[in-house]
Design a binder for these strands. Structure first.
Lengths: 161, 161
DNA sequence: ACTTGAAAATCAAGTATCTTTATTATAAAG
DNA sequence: CTTTATAATAAAGATACTTGATTTTCAAGT
């Protein structure tokens, strides 16, 4: 029973470590490219989703819509993203990654992507299924509780400044 | 062979999803407490390491030492951290979490921590060992490549502004 | 001991980012 | 066809960040 609890603690710690190391990696890339952290969060989102809207980007980065506009102006000027009208809603725009971003960030991430692919390939099918299952459940928990916190955001705490 | 590649892709995607959902969670907490994202990165680090130095905090958050000083001033004024002299080096200070932070953030995270603990407890010992192993290796890869990028930070790209 | 060069934290000035509030245009509902 | 809500933007003000200089201390070398 103690062995079991040790294992549980190890998984918790490992999940934290993994999370922290991802933050450090993102920060390193950001400094390298002269981006602020919200910039790279935005670009991460777009890299995965392909296309998004300023509204969703604002939610993801935690920015107000005002600063999201400013951020998208920056990134568009740097040719990292493109804005185009949303055919389904003339109020809105769609934001997508521009080729320039791939060319810029590619050399910085291709090695680690290769390394992670090799790491994953070294596991058995059974193990991979277990790992994927765990990660998805873990993420789903996080999403559920994020939603709760956002819902309770109407009587906000005061800022610290 | 195709099944295997599907599984590999699933793990990659799941890892990304997990990472993204953690960012969203952190941003939600930050907005709730009126913190900027570097503040909560700093507090995360301190929650895990217990005690740290402004130098290490600067590296972790990607801030300059100058803005780290300002950030620590903010957090100290809010009673979320404490500074105390470093007995081993009179130039430096040690930074640690203050009780006030635990009391403030505790209610916001205890439910999800409970949920994650239950999720983890639902796996067999074998599975837990596999998951921990994977997460640690994954994180170690990220750390290694973060280090490389930081090393190459001497001929930096130009900022985008 | 005494210099020298480096390291840790801080400070002050300037710049950039973020929030707030208001505005424009469009959508959806009554 | 008014009313209310939503999406994005703009401008002004507040906040956070960077840069460069300063202070104190450390670690070697002489």
């Amino acid at each position: 029973m103690n062995v079991k609890r040790d294992l549980e603690t190890q998984v918790l710690m490992a999940a934290r470590e993994s999370n922290i190391s991802s933050i450090l990696f993102r920060n390193a890339i950001s400094r390298k490219l002269g981006l602020v952290s919200t910039d790279s969060e935005c670009l991460s989102l777009l890299s995965i989703k392909g296309v998004s809207t300023p509204k969703d980007i604002a939610r993801f980065t935690g920015l107000t819509t005002g600063s999201t506009t400013a951020m998208l102006d920056r990134l568009e000027k740097a040719k990292f993203i493109k804005r185009r009208p949303n055919p389904a809603d003339r109020r809105g725009v769609l934001v997508e990654i521009n080729e320039q971003w791939t060319k810029t960030v590619g050399p910085l991430v291709e090695e680690i992507q290769q390394a992670q692919a090799e790491l994953i390939a070294s596991y058995s099918d059974n193990d991979l299924a277990t790992i994927a299952d765990f990660l998805i459940r873990f993420a789903n928990n996080v999403k559920a509780y994020t939603h709760r916190i956002e819902e309770s955001l109407n009587q906000p705490h005061r800022g610290i400044t």
